[in-house]
Simulated assay, not measured.
Amino acid sequence: MNTLHRSALLAAAGTALVLSLTACQGDGDTKSSPTQGSSVTVESPSGDSGGKGTTGSNGSASPTGSTGSKGSTGSTGTGGSTGTTGSSTSSGSAGSTGSTGEQASASTPVCAARDVHITAATQGGAPYTHIVLTAKNTSRRSCRLTSFPHIQFLESHKQDVPAVAKSKPAGPVVLAAGAPAYALVKLSDGGRDEDNEPVTAFSVMLAGDPTVIAVTAPGSEGIAVDPAKALTGYWTPELRNDADDF
């Protein structure tokens, strides 16, 4: 009796186990197995210099049904650098004013005979073909010398000595009180020439003033002048090798 009862219990238990396994297999066919989470990329909007990070993918489900680990959040992109402000342009330089000499010449009176003292000295060595005239401003104010000295060496030759155009200065010659100006004068071609005449004194006039200034010739015996070869330069603040070479 006990043996039959145990066998019946074992048979019932086996049948229940088979039915349970069959039900589990049928239920597994109707449900899909868990899949891995797919990753999603978020694009940054156009024109945004700092891109946003991508969203992390969901972790895969574990066999025991536990929730997968959450993906790490992408780092925020760095902002673009701020543009440098353009440098401001410098203002144009103001126009330069005229030179002091030009400004002074507009209101500076012309030198008269009473304003200057004129002397003569030989230039270079023998045969002393040139002399240098020096006009010193002896007044107490500035004045300007214009043009060239009007020279007459001989009483028998009343024409002024011609001027050399290349010796003309670029600007006005303004003499401060006590300042000098110079004019180079050619006497002859040199040597003993029958056309040369001895001169111990001669006359000089300034442009714009009819006053005759008597100038003593340099040297104890005076100078030898050839009226046909004589030339004079313009008044200049200093003698120049090129312009005054004649």
Rank of each mutant, 00 (worst) to 15 (best):
P127D: 12
Q25N: 09
A176P: 00
T129W: 00
D245I: 03
C24A: 08
D226A: 12
G28F: 15
A183F: 03
A106Q: 14
S20Q: 03
P149F: 06
S99T: 11
T84A: 08
S142D: 07
Y128F: 06
S105Y: 04
S72W: 13
G124C: 02
T35K: 15
F246E: 08
A13V: 01
V174P: 01
T3F: 02
P63N: 10
S7P: 05
G83Q: 10
F202M: 09
V116Q: 00
A181M: 07
E221D: 12
V110L: 09
D245R: 09
A181T: 01
T97M: 07
E197G: 01
L9I: 07
V40L: 15
K136I: 15
T200K: 10
S220K: 00
A243K: 12
D226L: 09
P180S: 04
L206H: 00
K70V: 05
S90M: 04
S32I: 00
R192D: 13
P180H: 09
D244K: 02
T64F: 06
P227L: 05
V164T: 03
S105V: 00
N137I: 05
V40M: 14
V161A: 00
T211F: 05
T55C: 05
T3R: 13
G191W: 10
A183T: 08
Q103D: 01
D160K: 03
S32M: 06
A23W: 06
T54D: 15
A176G: 09
D29L: 12
S20I: 03
Q36S: 13
A230S: 13
S96M: 02
H150W: 04
A112M: 09
D244Q: 12
S33D: 09
A135I: 01
G190F: 15
F246I: 04
A176S: 10
G125K: 05
T78R: 12
G53D: 03
G98T: 03
K70Q: 06
T97D: 00
Y128Q: 10
T82V: 08
R240W: 06
D115G: 11
Y182R: 00
T22E: 07
Q103L: 14
F148M: 11
A13Q: 03
G80Y: 08
G47A: 15
S32G: 10
A16D: 05
T200G: 06
P109A: 02
L187M: 11
T122R: 14
D115Y: 02
E238Y: 14
S39M: 11
T138A: 12
S220R: 08
L154T: 08
V110M: 13
N58T: 04
H157G: 10
S88I: 00
G65M: 10
G65R: 03
S39Y: 04
F153T: 03
V173T: 06
G51R: 07
D193A: 13
P180T: 07
G74F: 01
G171I: 08
T232Q: 12
V110C: 11
G26C: 02
L187N: 10
V40G: 15
V42N: 05
S81H: 02
V225P: 01
V215G: 04
L175R: 09
D48M: 09
G125I: 13
G125R: 12
V116G: 00
G14C: 09
N137T: 08
T122C: 06
D48P: 03
A13C: 05
T85Q: 04
I131N: 11
S62I: 09
P169E: 14
T85H: 02
L10A: 13
R144L: 04
A214M: 03
